[in-house]
Design a protein around this nucleic acid. Sequence first.
DNA 1: TTGAAAGCGCTAACAG
DNA 2: CTGTTAGCGCTTTCAA
Lengths: 328, 328
Amino acid sequence: MTLPKRVTITDVAEAAGVAASTVSRALSTPGRVNATTRDHILEVAERLGYVPNPSARAMSSGRTHTFALLVPDITNPYFAGAIKGAERAAAAAGKTLVLGDTQESPSVERELVQRLGPAVDGLVIAAARGTDEDLAAAAGRHRLALVNRTLPGVAGVPSVVADYDAGTRQIVDHLVSLGHESLVFLAGPHESWSGARRWAGLLAAAESSGVAARRLGPYQPTLQGGPAAADAALAARATAIVCHNDMLAIGVLRRLAGRGVRVPDDVSVVGFDDMFGADFCQPALTTLAERTEDAGACAIDLLLRPGSAATVVVPTQLKVRDSTGPCR
Amino acid sequence: MTLPKRVTITDVAEAAGVAASTVSRALSTPGRVNATTRDHILEVAERLGYVPNPSARAMSSGRTHTFALLVPDITNPYFAGAIKGAERAAAAAGKTLVLGDTQESPSVERELVQRLGPAVDGLVIAAARGTDEDLAAAAGRHRLALVNRTLPGVAGVPSVVADYDAGTRQIVDHLVSLGHESLVFLAGPHESWSGARRWAGLLAAAESSGVAARRLGPYQPTLQGGPAAADAALAARATAIVCHNDMLAIGVLRRLAGRGVRVPDDVSVVGFDDMFGADFCQPALTTLAERTEDAGACAIDLLLRPGSAATVVVPTQLKVRDSTGPCR
DNA sequence: TTGAAAGCGCTAACAG
DNA sequence: CTGTTAGCGCTTTCAA
């Protein structure tokens, strides 16, 4: 099966009886072309089925009209929102989005930055796993925006972060209103930037409310991390358990059920992320929702409009469901 | 913040004291270059941090080393596997994967094919929503591979499909062994190719086993579709409900629980997909698992090796969990 | 084995 | 407002 040869701008120019550059202008800066000739050109282009060659366009203009989004694990539903938001923002701006899976690995992340960087107008790294140095190096070579990570000391790297301070405040207030006087935080990996922010926020909010907060872990932030984490929380006689993320929280829920501990009667459980499934697990999970789709879209917007090298804070929202209740 | 100018092949050539074409050869066809000069060139390229410009490469070679994957909804966990598999297969081959979200819309799908097609070496469309004509047109212009869809009558379009015949057979056998003598299929959208295949397989298997099968619907294949679907199944006095997919099945489960119908004591429920969450919903869902990651990877492989215009069948596997039990 | 040279398709000065 | 003319960075003949 042979594919038909592509229609080029020259074909259109010939067919329309104008110069190639005029066709180019008619397409990219319609204002600078006589309305009649423009309409004619567009009509001819349409008829011939002309589609500009992105590579050629990139060659001469220097812009690829493409962005890359790097996530630690594509299959993790937590990132689905950011991916969708980024894809939508990119598509809305007529841009293409390239997706990269860093497999939770700093080195794969570095490689991808190097491989994809030259092919795109900018990179979004969500939940970057690399060191500050890695990211600074990347920022030196490419336009970069971060999601749920900041790069202190390096100017010009915009980022979008969830409002964990307000969010953890909400969690603590919620638990306090239920009569809880202490909480246990089941931590995820030490390297996790958002994990650190979550714990810091929780600790600050707890202190200001006179709630005792303890951190246990680190645990695997997965279903498999649940048993060890749940057992530790139980051993610590926790009445309220706040988990690094929903995956771990659901794992904890299962373990508690397996051990005959009732949620929320015996113990309350809170997660982070409001991940897909958090509403239909048993019991439905109280969790801090991040607007990940907005975050993804916002990161692309930051790339689209350079100069706005700000840190954008996206609000979070506590979803109260069935896994939290009055302190026993 | 200004980004440093990229190192080009000419820079490397000058620094190494050779012609640009020699550098090009040293990089892409190392065999055709004197070992000593080649090593020298590679060393210089490395030192200068040279990374080939993909657009320029695409311009002259015609190949972009990029594939596109189109899915109906990026946030649907069902597609996460295919995305990951495709990304991995592409990365393993040194290719780049572009992701497109067709928003479940045939027209967006068409647009994306047109927009992305020229920029890539091939397209994978998963669960294509377009008509056969749309797909035939796409196949005429681009290298194409399909996942869970076939294109009868159009040669040269390879596809990867789940083995629904064997899978539905497994479902029916499972229900029969539990004493069920009839089943109700809660259908998804009529346009769904896989929905049609699922029902056809179910019907054939049921007939050959002397099981009565009825189809109700169509229902929204989402949690929201659950109530209407569950109520209809109840009205039909079903003892075994097979749902178009896990989303719908979980929606059905929730509705049944809400109405006080016990699963699996009063009625058995089966889903399709073994989606993320199917194991931690309540009760854990018996469902037909597809190896979506393999399917995604396989589709990319089909694109990588033209000529193998086959239909690849990926096995399915029934995961028996807690939502199915003996007929009441 | 290597270099010179001709483009790939498009955009961006620069004239006219 | 439009045509001419250079390239963008790379691959690929074609000679040497």
